[in-house]
Design a protein around this nucleic acid. Structure first.
Lengths: 224, 224
DNA sequence: TTTTCATTAAGGGTTTCCCCTTCTTTATAT
DNA sequence: ATATAAAGAAGGGGAAACCCTTAATGAAAA
């Protein structure tokens, strides 16, 4: 139902990319498909921010890697001045690792340069409607980042900690000292020390701080 | 180019949902659009696993909330027995919080029940082609989970750490001792101690371990 | 020009941590 | 039934961390 009707033909768009040919291609696409109107183009973040002095677009399609002022800086600055501008980031494969920064900066979408016409159209439409659009590739990167803890279970098994040791680790990771833990568990500080020593040996760390860092890094503790 | 041609018409699909009407709807959709062939249906995870004894599908479209054996258990069991089955999870709004479990279990996609025909078709096609498909809504949930650290920047500002203190914090969070840090920065251990003391005061923590935990918890350090 | 502030440095005392060793109790096994 | 091991408890000593105070230097501000 939405597929064949022109999307917001009055949507004012600025293209920001340091490759004129690439800008030309996207401009043609946007205008042929009646997605919106390209009111200006910029070759880098600086040029774009200068343009903002005279005209404020509804939407910006922004490259990441550009000379002088890059896509992230331009995004941050532009949204500081005009929080309502919708910014769609054009990302290359490999640029994904910086996604959080753009999301934090307030970018509304993230799409790969290798995306097809339909995907670009879909992304622009969603963003104009106030939604967000993020490429599946980006999602896969994020999920990959999240999946790492899954492999840790093997480590957890190989460490073979007993309940006392797990409890100790939990308490140590809350920043409690040996004496404080002794008070909680109602055992002598010297006994607590013995448990900690065993943890140091099992994890091959050399002091409590190292042990706590090891536990957090390897997600042996959920809260701390 | 891919839009108007039938997608793998021989793709054998099993539908698993405890609402017969909903199954009927999806079945009609799949067959009318020549997406594939629905070879069987199941009203819950148990029924589905029983079906697997006799016929192995290429793909499964699976509800999460079902009686007896739920979607997660069914997904885990099925992929244990037949790792090549592609499973697309049908999620309700609010079920998003469990996404990691399904991803860990090996589900290839995640789509909202409110999704339209095009999105379902798109998801099925991608998954059959060996790719993944995750709904934008799920992505937004994940990003929301990741975005929490964004609020911390205010804290970072209020702490007002200078370069030396930031450097110190970075090194302390790698588990280095005062003396080790002194060797790296080429300053007296007593000086380093002074910096750490200032960090303890600024962060209102009572020892190095507390300081490091504070820094990690509030994402003042990126690596450790 | 003097003041203020940040940086670097150090001495000394207290506490906590870390390591080595010892001892008892409770399982587990042969 | 007794050897062997594992878990629990604790002492002593040295090292590192922690806390408080003092102070020289240089840069920025009044």
């Amino acid at each position: 139902m939405k597929k064949d009707q022109p999307l917001s033909p009055n949507c004012k768009i600025i293209l920001v990319d340091d490759h004129p040919l690439y800008r030309e291609g996207i401009k043609l696409l946007i205008e042929m498909e009646h997605i919106g109107e390209v009111i200006a183009e910029a070759g880098n973040g600086k040029e774009f921010l200068d343009l903002l002095e005279y005209q404020v677009p509804d939407m910006v399609i922004m490259d990441i890697d550009m000379p002088i002022v890059d896509g992230l800086q331009a995004t941050q600055k532009a949204l500081e001045l005009h929080p309502d501008i919708k910014i769609l980031i054009l990302s290359m494969h490999g640029d994904n690792k910086y996604y959080t920064r753009f999301i934090d900066a307030g970018a509304k979408g993230f799409i790969l340069k290798t995306a097809g016409k339909e995907e670009l159209e879909n992304a622009i439409q969603k963003i104009i409607n106030g939604e967000s659009y993020f490429s599946q590739d980006l999602l896969l990167t994020i999920i990959h980042d999240l999946k790492v803890p899954n492999q840790i279970s093997k480590l957890e098994l190989s460490l073979d900690l007993n309940d006392r040791e797990k409890e100790m680790l939990q308490l140590l990771c809350k920043g409690l000292s040996i004496v404080e833990i002794a008070d909680i568990i109602h055992l002598s500080p010297k006994t607590i020390e013995g448990y900690r020593t065993k943890l140091l040996i099992k994890t091959e760390t050399k002091n409590t701080l190292g042990l706590v860092l090891f536990a957090i890094k390897n997600k042996l503790v959920t809260e701390f």
